[in-house]
Structure formats: structure tokens, C-alpha cells
Simulated scan of single mutants.
Amino acid sequence: MGDVVKVACVGGGPAGLYFAILMKRTDPSHDITVHERYPEGSTYGWGVTYWRELHDTLHAIDPESARAIGDDSIRWDTWQAHVHDRPPLLVDHWDGGYGIGRGRLLAILADRAHDLGVRVEYEREITSEAELAGADLVVACDGVNSTLRERHADHFGTQVALGRNVYIWLGTTKVFGSFTFAFTDTPHGWIWCYGYGYSRDRSTCVVECSPETWEGLGFHRSGEADSLGLLGKLFADLLDGHPLIGRGTNGESARWLNFRTLTNQTWRRGNLVLMGDAAHTTHYSVGAGTALALGDAAFLVHALHSRPRLDSALAFYERERKSTIRCAQRAARNSARWYESLPRYVTLPPEQMFALLGQRHSALLPYLPPRLYHGLDQAYGSVAWLWSKIARPASRR
């Protein structure tokens, strides 16, 4: 589009880098700079997940970066569940999934951006749009704690809802061959984790529990070493002697957190637009954060090059992506509530419990007895489909 020539991306995560790549591929004349506050090679977290749909989309949009991402990804075709001392349950996954180290993903995208002529400036923290004078477009993709968004929180209508459960995002040298769930019963309640491989020698391991269990086990007064030690004992059978790791490449220790679901009434202010976690977050249990961030990037590029002026392009982007994100956030809220209601499901026969784990996105599940829901789902193939037939207004039948 004619009125966007110089672009500043604030934040060098997947969203910002992929946006810069696609903008340059669409029109090499764009002058694009990505500003990242961390040093090169430094990032929080461990591995990220993505699924077949994103895999295929990336190959269609930019095959070169997609091939590099695929080559460094670990793929799994099965899910495995360990429920206390019961025998493990192995289930074939219908479509499989992928894991890749967050640091490796960022390196691939940064290299691709550089090859296309994008400038990536590390250790460059932007705190105000005034520092980016002359930019036709400023893309705030600096995460859930976005500085640029917070400067105008009233304008954006930022709201944050805290999840009830607490979680901690860890790494481990145990490489899981399947996407693995483990649920452990303690005198203070259930604690659980899920893990997935993301490289040949590392996996992500996310641990979660209710606040009552967290406090009962003493995590509220434990330091990092003591917390990791106790978690290693609680999941000893799963880890096979491998350690849990709390400190990432950015040097920061892992912390227990309540997940923050972030929404904004609007995603734009003048030539400033929000993208990725700066605009929205979805509970980690659905594994959609990376896919949604990359989807934001791709659609924003499409909007900018299919609308004649910046204001109409940003309005188009906001309208269409907010609709997509609302659906994802509804599913994520239902998934989070499933885990918050774990005692309702965890004592079911393993096959039923795991089947309902796969149905945790359902808005209907909390309102039906779990065994009844499972029975209906087995009989009709999809309770959601059955409910749509029963609840549809008579005028539409």
C-alpha cells in the first residue's frame, strides 16, 4: 500500500519477525526494522508447539523458512497419559503435532528476515512511539507486558483475567516420545504436568495445580531449587532420573504464575497496531499461542496490501482477527476450566478420562455428568454436533 514505507516492529518474537519477513517478501522496498530488548540468542521459555494446519500454512506462505522450521522440529503421533499409579494409556493422535525450541525458531526467523533485508536490532528497548519518529507504521508485538500498549491502556481498553490455577513452565533433559500427560495425587490434592519434546535432547514440561495444592505442598515458601527438587520427586517415574530445569537462556528463573488472559477493546491507535500476545493471549493448555501470533502477522500483511489506506487496513485487520481470536479464547477458557475442575474427571476409567481430556474445549461438558457426556459422544460421534441439532431454533429446522 502506498502510505506504508517505513515500518518499526517493537518486539523480536515470532510475530514481529514473521511479519517483517512477509512484508519484505510482498514488497522489498519496505524499510523494516525489528527492535528486540533482549540480546541475540536470549529468550524465555523452552519449546513451543504447533500443529499440522500451521505446518501446511507456513509452507504455503514462505516455503524457505517453513522448511528450516520443519527440519529442526520434533514430531509426535501419539498422546500418553499417566494417572497416578495406573498403567500408562497410549492413544494415537489424529493429526500429530510438532515441537521446536523457541530460541531455535527465533533464530530461523531472524536469519530469514536478515536475508531479505530486514534490520534486527538487539538490546534495543523501545518505551515510547516518540523513539520511532518517522515510521509510517509501528507494530507493537512486545508481548503480554507490552510497554507501548500499557502507555495507552485506557485507549486500548486492556483487560486481564487471572486463571485460578498456578503453573510453572520448565525444561527437562527427558525427551518425551509422545505428547505426555502425568497426573499425581498428593495428600494436598492433584498436581499434573504435560511434556513434549522440542529437540533431540530437551523437552518442555509445564506443571499445574490448584492454589490449595500449591500451598499445601509448600511451594509458596520454596525457592527455585527446592521447588524443582520436590517436583522431581513427584514426577520421578515420568522423568526417569532426568532433571527439571528452571533457568532459560535469558538467565531468568522460572516462576509460579497464574495465567493471564488478555483482551483489548481495540487493537489500533493512529499508526500503532497491536499483534500477538500484546493484543491477546490464550491459555497455554490449547497450544495455540504461536499459531495465532503468526496468523496475526500474515493477516496484517494481507490487510496492508489489500486496502488503499492505513486506517482502513488496520480496521480490516482488527475486525477479522478479533473474530478469530474470540473463538480461540472461548475454547482456551473451557480448556482451562477443565483443569480447574480436574477432580470431576480424574477418577473416571482412564479411557473415559482421556477422552474427555480431548473434549475439554467443549462449552457443554461442564453442564453434563462426565459419564453421560462420554456416552453421548461415543454414541453420536460428537456431542457438539448433537447439541447443535437439539438447540437449534425451530424456525431454522
Rank of each mutant, 00 (worst) to 15 (best):
R149T: 04
R149W: 07
R151F: 08
A153C: 03
D154C: 06
F156S: 04
T158W: 06
L162M: 14
R164T: 09
N165W: 07
V166F: 10
I168Y: 13
I168Q: 09
L170A: 07
G171F: 11
G171R: 14
G171K: 10
T172Q: 11
T172P: 13
T173M: 13
V175K: 06
V175R: 07
V175Q: 01
G177Y: 12
G177R: 14
S178Y: 09
S178E: 11
F179W: 05
F179Y: 12
F179R: 03
T180K: 09
T180C: 12
F183S: 06
F183L: 14
F183P: 05
F183R: 10
T184F: 03
T184N: 12
T186Q: 12
P187L: 04
P187R: 05
H188L: 08
G189W: 12
W190V: 11
W190A: 15
W192E: 10
W192Q: 11
G195I: 01
Y196A: 11
G197M: 04
Y198C: 01
S199H: 00
R200T: 11
R200Y: 04
D201I: 09
D201F: 08
R202Y: 09
T204H: 01
C205M: 02
V207N: 01
E208M: 01
S210I: 00
S210P: 00
P211G: 02
P211D: 00
E212P: 00
G216K: 06
L217V: 05
R221N: 10
S222K: 15
E224S: 14
E224L: 15
A225Y: 04
L228F: 06
L230Y: 15
L231M: 14
G232P: 13
L234Q: 12
A236H: 06
L238I: 13
L238K: 07
L239H: 06
G241F: 05
H242Y: 15
L244Y: 02
I245K: 15
G246R: 01
G246A: 01
G248V: 00
N250R: 12
G251W: 03
S253G: 11
A254F: 02
W256I: 00
L257G: 04
N258E: 06
N258S: 08
F259A: 06
R260G: 08
R260V: 12
R260P: 05
L262D: 05
